[in-house]
Amino acid sequence: MTEQSTNWEPKIIAFLCNWCSYAGADLAGVSRFQYPSNIRIVRVPCSGRVSENMIMSALKSGADGILVSGCHPGDCHYISGNYFARRRFALLSNLLDFIGIEPGRVNFSWVSASEGEQFAEVVQSVTEKVKALGPASRLVKKIDALETALQVA
């Protein structure tokens, strides 16, 4: 729990669609593009499967950064999932910015199955942003901290 220590490494949750971005991540591997190890990939069928609840819950659980990535518009394996997702993400992204969640905590990208290098670049840039921001504290639930408060009340 000593988050501020100098060798702090963020943990970044990435929700990747199975058909494009997850495949892009695989291609990055096949091509040996190196990127920071902070990312934890969660495979989902489609970016349209990713809900605001999932994103917020991941933040609550302590993700220092979040990346949601799907197929480029028009490429969705499920025809239109990423179009609906794009609207939902646009609104969520703006709302989070509005309440003061640091830009860069929650990130969205389109990465296709052939964009291995781009995937590595996205991870690189997201990781750098999150590192620059430091450990997430906003909307991160802390059971220990609350405990102290309650014990004295």
Binding site: G48, R49, Y78, S80, G81
Partner: peptide, 24 residues
Amino acid sequence: CGACVAGCRSDAVTLKNIGNEQIM
């Protein structure tokens, strides 16, 4: 694809084995 799952406000729809429970 799960578009319905993510869209549902009341969590009334889930995707078998790729539900919110498993993902989270």
